[in-house]
Nucleic acid binder design. Structure first.
Length: 198
DNA sequence: TATACGATCACCT
DNA sequence: GGTGATCGTATAC
């Protein structure tokens, strides 16, 4: 499986946020490999985006967003959860994609009622459903130790391109979550998800 | 140094 | 629908 390249991460953030859907987020932890299919993302773009952490400029925390694309931006939220972002666009332009949700496609997972083998992975039931950035990071053992991690090598944390043979459902665009403070920016349709969820 | 609050989640009514 | 947990960060003092 091919690892997403620096070149991929240097593209337009909205495009990346959509193209990450269906890709595999891979975590290597204590010698084990965990893979999750990305099903939900949000774009945070530039200092003019009032929802973006970089809207208040360069700080020690947001420095990574200004750096080379293809690195991880991991921060703690509400004192108890972590959120994983991938840094996008060119160096010195602060932007990132928040990974908000995924599906654990492990074949060991029991199928939910009404599901058959071969059931589309992103329509699987709750057993493998990692809906929410906090839950996703908790499952994949992602915390601030992985902040600034380079995602373009096959160590600890990376993303692999999606299987082109698998047809993805329509991408749903909606408002971003939990950013009521962001004034007009909260109206932007910068949240992207596969159609089994809203 | 002090304080306010958040790119969340689980549990409650 | 609402609320509490819990702490890093930004900002005010």
């Amino acid at each position: 499986m091919k690892i997403l390249s620096r070149r991929f991460y240097s593209q337009n953030t909205i495009k990346i946020a959509q193209e990450l859907l269906g890709c595999f987020l891979v975590r290597e932890y204590r010698g084990k490999i965990m893979k999750v299919i990305i099903t939900e993302t949000e774009a945070y773009i530039g200092e003019n985006d009032l929802a973006c952490h970089a809207s208040r400029g360069r700080t020690p925390r947001t420095e990574v967003m200004y750096g080379v694309p293809g690195h991880a931006y991991v921060y703690m939220i509400y004192g108890m959860y972590h959120c994983l972002n991938v840094v996008t666009e060119e160096k010195d332009f602060p932007a990132a994609v928040l990974i908000r949700g995924g599906i654990n496609p492990s074949p060991a997972l029991p199928l939910a009622k009404g599901e058959s083998p071969g059931f589309p992975l992103w329509q699987r039931g709750t057993k493998g459903d990692l809906n929410g950035p906090g839950k996703l990071c908790r499952f994949l053992k992602i915390d601030r130790k992985l902040n600034t991690w380079d995602l373009t090598k096959s160590e600890k944390l990376w993303i692999e391109e999606r299987d082109s043979k698998i047809k993805l459902p329509k991408v749903i665009k909606s408002r971003r979550i939990g950013i009521d403070y962001a004034k007009h920016c909260k109206e932007y349709l910068w949240r992207y998800s596969l159609s089994s969820r809203t």
